Amino acid sequence: MKIWVAVLSILGGLAGLASGFMVTAFGVGFSEDAMADSGAAVFWVSFLSIFFGFLAWKFPKFSGIVLLICAIYGFIANGLFFTIAFIFLFIAGILSFFIKKKQTVSATA
């Protein structure tokens, strides 16, 4: 399960990076400052989502919430350009809630 969270967050983060770059480039090209700003914000949020996908191995609940927030924010900011990234990040965020912590057995004599 941990591997899937990392893989989906990497795929979602890469799709989000591409989405943020495209929206930023088109915003600059069409002289739309708000579009360029939201694209740049989604670019960096997508970059951070890759990091939080790996952080889910240690802190699954916190990372799951952050991945869900990244997915929803990116979809609101970039719209349909962010659809593929939204799907991957949303599934990774949900799956991170199902990561089970290992039980450590301490030997006390």
Results as ranks from 00 to 15, higher is better:
residue 78 N to P: 04
residue 57 W to Q: 01
residue 104 T to Q: 12
residue 87 I to F: 14
residue 11 L to A: 10
residue 21 F to H: 13
residue 12 G to C: 08
residue 45 V to S: 08
residue 72 I to S: 15
residue 3 I to S: 04
residue 102 K to M: 05
residue 33 D to L: 15
residue 102 K to N: 15
residue 32 E to C: 07
residue 11 L to R: 08
residue 50 I to Q: 05
residue 38 S to T: 13
residue 50 I to N: 02
residue 23 V to F: 11
residue 92 A to L: 01
residue 19 S to I: 02
residue 74 G to M: 05
residue 71 A to H: 07
residue 97 F to G: 00
residue 78 N to A: 15
residue 101 K to V: 00
residue 102 K to P: 06
residue 33 D to W: 08
residue 70 C to V: 05
residue 70 C to F: 15
residue 12 G to V: 10
residue 40 A to F: 08
residue 43 F to C: 00
residue 53 G to E: 02
residue 97 F to Y: 14
residue 103 Q to V: 15
residue 5 V to Y: 00
residue 37 D to T: 08
residue 25 A to Q: 13
residue 83 T to R: 08
residue 28 V to G: 03
residue 27 G to L: 03
residue 67 L to F: 06
residue 109 A to L: 14
residue 9 S to G: 10
residue 76 I to H: 11
residue 39 G to Q: 09
residue 10 I to Q: 02
residue 42 V to N: 08
residue 11 L to W: 12
residue 2 K to T: 01
residue 106 S to I: 14
residue 56 A to M: 03
residue 73 Y to A: 12
residue 75 F to H: 08
residue 33 D to S: 12
residue 53 G to Y: 03
residue 41 A to Y: 07
residue 72 I to C: 12
residue 40 A to M: 13
residue 17 L to Y: 03
residue 2 K to E: 01
residue 96 S to A: 15
residue 43 F to R: 02
residue 25 A to L: 09
residue 80 L to W: 12
residue 80 L to E: 15
residue 33 D to I: 13
residue 33 D to Q: 11
residue 100 K to I: 00
residue 13 G to I: 01
